[in-house]
């Protein structure tokens, strides 16, 4: 258990909307071990990104508010950290890369300048020349061709995949313990996506950084992650090691998700399985299990109270009354 670097405990986050405060993330708990990649998977709006932004303390204010829970980075509760300490946390201990490499870089600053800023912030002992060398080394590490000339380029002069590499270089500049990747490959085409994923895998092997990888793509999870937590409508419904989850999914939602993936060994051109219905809106969340209205195996008690996350096997937890 000492291996755990980050523990999110019973996190609840709410947002101010026109319909009042709505809970976007409820009672979410998971942990991240050193050097592992944890996948956080779920459909759009299920609270993955909100969870990630909460860890970074980057929730949009004053709309977003953390209602309850703790986020323990080793022995520090990040939610109790004074605002003045946050710049020392961000980038240095926990870094983050975002979905849109097109807009995540400042369009009017040179690439080298933007990476150098990160190096300079967290390693103030380096002089300008050393920072410059470090920047080139970082760009080389993320496999950017001709890094010495690329430092002078502006973001609009390079491709989306290259920009995401620059983002990764910037995020890794201070050698953080944890890297949160919020759908970093969603905006890229498939071949570039594969390159970025293999780059992240290689970098993790080199640096030992723990990664929280947020995605809605189960294929990416299978390729990259050690463990995975499935989120649905603001809650974690199942978490397990990747092999376990893909081999024996327990939660009806996870089962539905996996059944909906096209496979080569199924009858070609047969209709794909789908999950009937839609996710309830945040302001009409049922008091019980949030998946109840779409669940093929719904029971009476599912409508009464949300099912707790219970251990059903080695490192495998499910929030479903079928198993408790």
């Amino acid at each position: 258990m000492n291996n755990t670097i980050l523990r999110v405990e019973r996190l609840s986050v709410s947002f101010a909307t026109e319909k009042g405060r709505l809970t976007a993330v409820e009672d979410v708990s998971f942990s991240l071990r050193r050097g592992e990649t944890l996948g956080l998977v779920g459909e759009s709006g299920c609270g993955k990104s909100v969870t990630a932004l909460s860890i970074m303390r980057l929730l949009p204010r004053p709309a977003g508010r953390i209602e309850a829970g703790r986020i323990m980075l080793e022995n520090t509760d990040l939610l109790r950290l004074p605002a003045a300490d946050l710049p020392g946390l961000r980038g240095r201990r926990i870094a983050m890369i975002f979905q849109e490499p097109m807009t995540a870089l400042n369009p009017v600053h040179r690439l080298g300048q933007q990476v150098a800023e990160a190096v300079h912030l967290h390693r103030p002992e380096l002089d300008d020349k050393a920072v410059g060398q470090e920047v080139v080394a970082m760009l080389k590490q993320v496999r950017i061709p001709e890094p010495t000339s690329r430092v002078k380029a502006y973001p609009h002069q390079i491709s989306g995949g290259m920009r995401q590499r620059v983002m990764i270089a910037m995020a890794l500049a201070a050698r953080p313990d944890i890297l949160i990747a919020d759908e970093p490959t969603t905006a890229l085409d498939v071949t570039i996506q594969a390159q970025i994923l293999s780059l992240m895998r290689d970098l993790q092997a080199e640096t030992g950084t723990a990664i929280i990888f947020i995605t809605h793509d189960l294929g990416v999870i299978a390729e990259l992650c050690h463990r995975v937590a499935v989120m649905y409508a603001g809650r974690i419904v199942e978490s397990a090691a990747v092999e376990t989850l893909f081999r024996s999914p327990r939660h009806p939602y996870t089962q539905g998700l996996l059944a909906a993936i096209p496979r080569l060994d199924r009858t070609p051109k047969a209709p794909l399985a789908t999950i009937e219905g839609t996710v309830p809106a945040l302001d009409t969340m049922p008091p019980g299990c949030r998946f109840a209205n779409r669940c093929p195996r719904v029971m009476e008690r599912c409508h009464l109270a949300p099912p707790p996350l219970v251990e059903v096997g080695e490192g495998h937890a499910v929030a479903c009354y079928l198993y408790s």
Partner: peptide
């Protein structure tokens, strides 16, 4: 987004 990036890098 790039302002969020800047804050995220510390």
């Amino acid at each position: 987004d790039y302002v969020r990036t800047a804050v995220a890098k510390g």
